[in-house]
Simulated assay, not measured.
Amino acid sequence: MLIVFFLEYLVGVEVGQDNIRKQELETLEQSLDDLKTPEISLFFQILKDDDPVLGDLDASISIIEFSNFQCKFCLRFYSDTLPLLKTQYIDTGKVNLVYRDFPLPQIYANSMPAALASECANEQGKFWEYHDMLFEDQNSWRQNDPGLAISTFKQFATTLNLDQEKFDSCLDLGKYSDEINSDVDDGLDYVVSGTPTFFIGNEKIGYSSLFGTQSFSDFQTIIDEKLSDDM
């Protein structure tokens, strides 16, 4: 089943507004959570692009994540599932995680600035530290006016001791907007219709997809099958 992009018809949210009311956003997110699905498709060509990789670049299996930093369910993956994946698969060299941007600015007003900020941090070699800070402190900026959120993103750069002038210029100019839009275009080609969406596997054995807030055991089942198939 294809999920309608942005789910505007399911929850009565009018796409085109820069912001939506908090209650509408919560209703939308609950609809996204209700529509989470198990393994739905098999793909053989899922590009990693040149996006940040967590773990061994030569790991036999990749998890390619399409995510946005303002999404509550992306935060849930970060908080509840990623630590277990990291301990059991990523740190052991079996699997790596590729982060690809999929902001939804019509729904999440701060998702594009957050993605731009993470790319600016990546330019200075601190993507994963900035990634973690965006998720761990999501409540400090998630519902803010975009201007205030950008100020918070610049403060995060200060906390990480980044070159502040370089970071601020990068963010203010939207330096990596084309890179982010390229991720979005690829995601749409792969029928990504919401965040988070994951593709697990490699080009030899194919990638299986997962959508939404799946449990560690859901990932574990697919990863173990892929590892076995890749032997």
Rank of each mutant, 00 (worst) to 15 (best):
I90F: 02
F77A: 00
L28R: 09
N110T: 15
E203P: 01
A149R: 01
D137N: 14
P38Y: 01
D178T: 11
S67M: 01
Q220W: 01
Y78N: 03
K204E: 08
G194I: 07
L173R: 15
Y89E: 13
D189L: 04
E26Q: 13
F69M: 14
F211Y: 13
L85G: 02
N110L: 12
S67R: 01
Q164E: 12
E165A: 14
E123F: 12
D224S: 05
L134V: 06
S193V: 07
P38F: 02
N161Y: 15
K86D: 13
T221N: 10
S209M: 12
D163W: 15
Q143W: 04
N161M: 15
K48R: 12
V192S: 04
F44R: 07
P103S: 07
L57V: 06
L57P: 03
S60G: 02
G187T: 11
A115C: 11
N68Y: 00
L148T: 05
G201K: 02
L82N: 03
N110D: 14
M1W: 10
S140Y: 02
A117V: 07
S151V: 11
K175H: 10
S151G: 08
E225H: 08
H131N: 04
E39K: 13
E24R: 01
R76E: 06
Q88W: 07
S31T: 04
F77R: 01
D230I: 05
N202K: 11
S215A: 13
D230Y: 14
L42E: 05
K204F: 05
D33M: 05
R142I: 15
E165D: 15
L28H: 11
S177H: 04
I150Q: 02
S177V: 11
V191N: 13
V192D: 03
G55P: 00
Q138C: 06
T195H: 13
G212E: 11
D183V: 02
D186L: 14
A121G: 12
Y108A: 14
D34K: 00
Q164H: 14
D56M: 00
A59T: 07
N110A: 12
S228D: 07
S228Q: 09
S193F: 04
P196F: 03
D33E: 09
Y207H: 05
K204W: 00
D172C: 11
L25E: 08
T37C: 08
Y190K: 12
V4E: 13
F66K: 03
L148H: 00
D183L: 06
S79M: 14
T213M: 03
D58L: 10
Y108S: 15
D49A: 14
I222Y: 04
S151I: 13
L54P: 04
C74E: 07
T195L: 12
M133P: 00
I3G: 11
S31M: 01
I200V: 10
T81N: 03
E136A: 09
P105W: 00
L82R: 12
D186F: 01
